[in-house]
Design a protein around this nucleic acid. Structure first.
Lengths: 316, 316
DNA sequence: GGTCCCTGTTTGTCCTGGACGAATAGGCCT
DNA sequence: AGGCCTATTCGTCCAGGACAAACAGGGACC
């Protein structure tokens, strides 16, 4: 009863619906069909594609594999079992750093206990501190949840539920940290993501780390056009623009966007980029933060740099 | 250098970039060009469209007008002055209910003072109460900011900034309300939006109203596929599914989606739909909430209905 | 032995132009 | 005046072809 597939009533989806659900553009769906012979949607009486829900499910697996680096030509058309096996390799590679907490969270998620989730995460924040939570435990939990979803152990709505509670906990902890502690000081930091990037969790965790370092941060939320980021940096008189990249942003697009932003930003403003997106490389004026725990020392370094200015090799 | 327009470095945008920035699908952009002779993008050497930034700005105006109910055939191709005039009529129709607060907020927004924004909004919550804030002052502020943006008085990043601070204030107030007061009780409420709807503020304000009524609410965040909403309602054992619709959702799609959801949801679960989307009509099992302040009495009515069950004729 | 460039292939995205259905508006009838 | 019905408008879909950006593999150079 809890187990049967939830799309009984609407087993057929239009191409637009599939685009929304799987994140695969219409053009790509048609190209795969033409080139690899999959998917093979039914057609309505006016020849419009109607995707059965099992094919949509397979497309979701494919999306994840392609995101993880597999080439469409190698995976499109293979059986669901093959795909799941590959996916397990991908997800399984993730270290189970936070085993015990992750297991509890997954259990609460299956029981659909939102309050319990908030409670346990709040407890972790109190016990381990906001820094450890944002820098390692939180990402570990998110990864565990994502992996469980890709193994088919969780529904999408349970992943939504997790994000929502996680966001709530993190935001209120940030609020508390902002009210406590010494007054906010420089660097002034502006947070956002590029328009391609809808993922807010990474940004929020970064915000937590900067807040703990007593930085004066302002977030624009996700999906800000690049010229707007530059304009906001001017308006906020930002010292640092912090950008978060998940793996869904194609690496070249991220690189291009960063150069573009670099070009229109004042030289005095640094760009700090972080996240799971590979292929980010540091350049003058662009710092790549591989790990959230690197933020604290980086802020300290920035402050030292500003306090003892003008070693003429660099900029300024 | 600091002052000239920030798109110097990228005055030309691809059709995909325009789709992202203006929210107009590629097919629609091409159709307008074919039918109305606007936009008229340049072409690169391989004949791909390159949109100058002034045309993109006009497209943004058009988008807003079309959302407001104007027909493309009547407005596409007219001068920017005409369009701005029309837009002023649309935005100007909005009552300036919260004049003094709105003016302060706009001022802080122009000064880019995030902390000040949070402060004033927190002060409003304390003075007027969370209920008044979520039900009338907040929406009024949001409307004022949107109108200012459409009049060209604010940049997009300032609207982002507003949403972000607004969200923060509202979330922390909801948190506080959840911890205080009597223990949460039924109805159990599930919050989300349809996949077409990315707007989270309406949902958050609704969540605040339900929380004040001591309901046990869980939010899935935005953009949940309909079958997933149904599955989550089962898992959460929800009594009510609360959905928020902004005006960007085409009314017929909302109606269709609601019927679909109604069909796969247990009869014991009610659907409550609210938001700016016109053309929502109540039906059996579907309550339309025109105004956030209607939530409190609706919850009371629900409780009365459940306490004194089974008068099978139409209730209330 | 490792790194760089260069070339062939894969893959996503864009093009045109035609078609049709869903949404709207306006006329007609009651 | 109000509800139905038709005409129009507008968004979305289709096919099939094209090309460039991203990738992988091999060879030259350090």
């Amino acid at each position: 009863m809890t187990n049967d597939d939830s799309s009984d009533s609407a087993p057929l989806m239009s191409i637009a619906a599939v685009e929304r659900d799987c994140g695969l553009p219409k053009d790509t769906l048609r190209a795969w069909e033409r080139r690899y012979g999959f998917p093979v949607p039914l057609r309505d009486r006016h020849d419009e594609r109607l995707y059965p829900s099992d094919q949509v499910a397979t497309l979701r697996l494919l999306r994840r594999l392609v995101d993880a680096g597999h080439r469409p030509g190698k995976v499109v058309g293979r059986s669901d079992e093959d795909l799941s096996a590959l996916l397990r390799q991908v997800g399984g590679a993730a270290p189970e750093v936070v085993g015990s907490e992750a297991r509890q969270v997954l259990m609460l998620l299956r029981a659909y206990d939102a309050a319990g989730l908030r409670e346990i995460m709040n407890a972790i924040v109190l016990r381990a501190g906001l820094g450890a939570f944002a820098a390692s435990i939180g990402p570990g939990l998110a990864q565990a949840v994502g992996a469980a979803w890709s193994r088919g152990e969780l529904e999408i709505h349970q992943e939504h539920l997790f994000s929502e509670q996680f966001t709530t906990v993190l935001r209120s902890a940030i609020n508390a940290a902002q009210s406590a502690g010494p007054p906010r000081a420089r660097p002034r930091v502006l947070f956002s993501t590029f328009p391609q990037e809808p993922h807010a969790l990474g940004l929020l965790m970064a915000e937590a780390m900067f807040t703990l370092e007593d930085c004066l941060g302002v977030s624009l939320g996700v999906r800000t056009p690049i010229p707007e980021i530059a304009a906001a940096a001017r308006a906020h008189r930002a010292d640092i623009v912090a950008l978060s990249f998940s793996s869904i942003v194609p690496a070249p697009q991220a690189t291009t966007g960063l150069s573009e932003l670099r070009a229109i930003l004042s030289d005095a403003v640094e760009i700090w980029a972080g996240g799971a997106c590979p292929g980010l490389h540091p350049k003058p004026g662009l710092l790549v933060i591989r790990d959230l725990s690197a933020i604290a020392p980086a802020v300290a370094a920035w402050r030292a740099r500003v306090a003892a200015p003008a070693s003429p090799s660099g900029a300024a």
